[in-house]
Design a protein around this nucleic acid. Structure first.
Lengths: 344, 344
DNA sequence: GACAGTTGTGCAACCGCTTGCATTAATTGT
DNA sequence: ACAATTAATGCAAGCGGTTGCACAACTGTC
């Protein structure tokens, strides 16, 4: 079928082991021999078979990337960055979509385990225990989840939620609704925890609505409930829900931001293009993808790296938030973004 | 390290070949033995190593999926559908992003060739000759491109472009601009061919602007040029460009659709959420992803399938198109969508 | 000119699994 | 009751590579 190391060996008159070394340990082979072998290989169009190599070396040069929903606009930039970074290190990426189903997550990790050097688990929905167990079967890096002993890249949504709620209370909002995300989401718990604390500190009432599916529809369907709760401002689990919510509010006759202010999280590309433009907490998605890959690849070097990398978020103020009925804080920044950065 | 066929053999007191057959040819092993082996395997957590198996069978149960830009909202639904369909058939998917670069496309196909059963090339930018050559090294299915002898799934954008232009001429537009896509895009050529012919038949003038990068920016930056050309209607290569164009037109003081009508292609999720909502040609992206995978997997059965599957498109009329200065055709449908379907 | 060190290559086992063939035991036909 | 099938299993080669070890053939040293 395809050209193997043996063909190259025959063509260049050396033993297969010499050909092998030409590619995987060039310094061990005589420069003359080496160039002859390379020439033959080139001419025959030889490419080492990675699967065969992996069988004996244990390194596959593949990475698994598992996300809840490829079509959720939050993920593509992450996937793209991860793929690009992986390929920079000569690795390829398996992508799997779990449809938010923890059982599928487990199955896919196991199915992939043998043919990857490690797996990136993005916003996983499974239990901590299961993740810990899986991490004994295959190197794991988790994105947007904190588990002791598991290397992780997390976006600091708690900080983001704090900035968002502070922005709202500073502008006089006292009745705030929080649209929580899907069950099992660590991010959603973090947001809730931080938003609750911040609201209390700002003397505002926080009503939690959810859990909800993290989609446009998830936001659309709770618009009524938001209005009934009498909230003048809403923080949504993500931009998609925020956008859906705005649709729902508008078609229920409420104005955004005059009657209700809405803040999303993620700053997906879409959020700049809707009307009103969405105020949102920007998360460094691409950076997270790159960092997660780097972490996974470094994993081999220092045994059992267990670092948690925190990426800061920032509030991007656009047109979906306005003043509320209460008194404004004089310290309210009229500015556009509250900056963050990258820290570890 | 991990549990192999040998461990299972030892535990169940049979030869490794029996264990192997238990999984890959169960009818050849005695039911009693089989269940004993299965029990041991289960208990040890055995999972066949696909790479090792592939080495001898030649079937990897992997598929390569190559796209120009994962972050382009056109692709995620396709990737998602393909991944889902692949996994239904117990296959996994490698995803690679080429950044619209033909050289990267070639390199990635070659790099992946050995570890996949086939490659899906989505909207490739390389030459026909190269694609033909690559298809001799690894089974290929091409999406959105027609090449004799290469199995393909194509969305009928020519039909879509025709519907779009007809819609415009019927509503009295006589000066129409076409924003073409990136160089090397078959889709772009098809659109241009069809739009030109249809415009001529409708006694309208068609100005081609481009090639342009298939992004929001690509549309944004040509807004001036569109106005200068005096066009009252524009068909863009894709929705992203159409949305960018609308942004550009609005901020240049033009109204959409009162001054300029805009039609996109693809009907990405975003297009329903912008203001004005975008009139667009809906392409069956998910169906294409599924069909391409099916075609690739069927490829093994009937040697060298060479079928071209055409998926129909439909015009979705929303708010970004309005009447033009010329006379309306009485036959202009006030309706919402011009239906299509699926045909081969 | 014998001795220890390099350097470059070949040999063969092995990674985890499949599969053609040989072997043995059980079943069938007559 | 015995040859001929048939069913179940074992044996070993091999898929395409890697790698520890042995073995030259050269260096340079005294």
């Amino acid at each position: 079928m395809s050209v193997t190391i043996r063909d190259v060996a025959r063509a260049s008159g050396v033993h297969i082991s010499t050909v092998s070394r030409t590619f995987s340990a060039p310094h061990l082979v005589n420069p003359n021999t080496r160039s002859r072998v390379l020439a033959c290989a080139e001419q025959l169009g030889y490419r080492p078979n990675r699967a065969a190599r992996a069988l004996i070396t244990g390194r596959t040069y593949n990475i698994g990337l598992i996300v809840a929903d490829i079509a959720n606009p939050f993920f593509p930039p992450l996937i793209k960055a991860a793929e690009s970074q992986a390929r920079k290190h000569d690795h390829h990426i398996f992508v799997a979509d779990t449809n938010e189903d923890p059982a599928v997550e487990e199955e896919v990790v196991r199915a992939l385990a043998k043919q990857v050097d490690g797996v990136l688990l993005c916003s996983p929905r499974m239990s901590n225990t299961l993740i810990e167990q899986l991490s004994r079967e295959v190197p794991l890096v988790v994105v947007n989840r904190q588990i002791t002993g598991i290397p992780a890249v997390v976006m600091d949504v708690a900080q983001g939620a704090r900035l968002a709620i502070e922005h709202l209370t500073a502008r006089g909002h006292r009745e705030i609704a929080l649209l929580s995300g899907p069950r099992g989401s660590w991010t959603s718990r973090e947001i809730r925890r931080s938003a609750t604390a911040t609201a209390r500190a700002g003397h505002a009432e926080l009503t939690v609505i959810g859990p909800n599916p993290p989609t446009e529809t998830g936001g659309l369907t709770v618009a009524e409930e938001v209005l009934r709760a009498g909230a003048t401002a809403v923080l949504a689990y993500n931009d998609l829900m925020a956008i859906g919510l705005i649709e729902g509010l508008l078609s229920a006759g409420a104005r955004v931001p005059e009657d209700v202010s809405v803040i999303g999280i993620d700053d997906i590309m879409l959020s700049r293009l809707t009307r009103p433009k969405l105020t949102t907490v920007a998360t460094p998605t691409a950076a997270a993808g790159r960092a997660a890959v780097d972490m996974l690849l470094a994993h081999g070097d220092d045994r059992r790296s267990t670092a948690h990398l925190h990426l800061q978020t920032e509030l991007v103020i656009r047109d979906s938030t306005g003043p509320g009925p209460g008194p404004h804080s004089p310290a309210d920044p009229g500015g556009v973004t509250v900056p963050g950065g990258v820290a570890s």
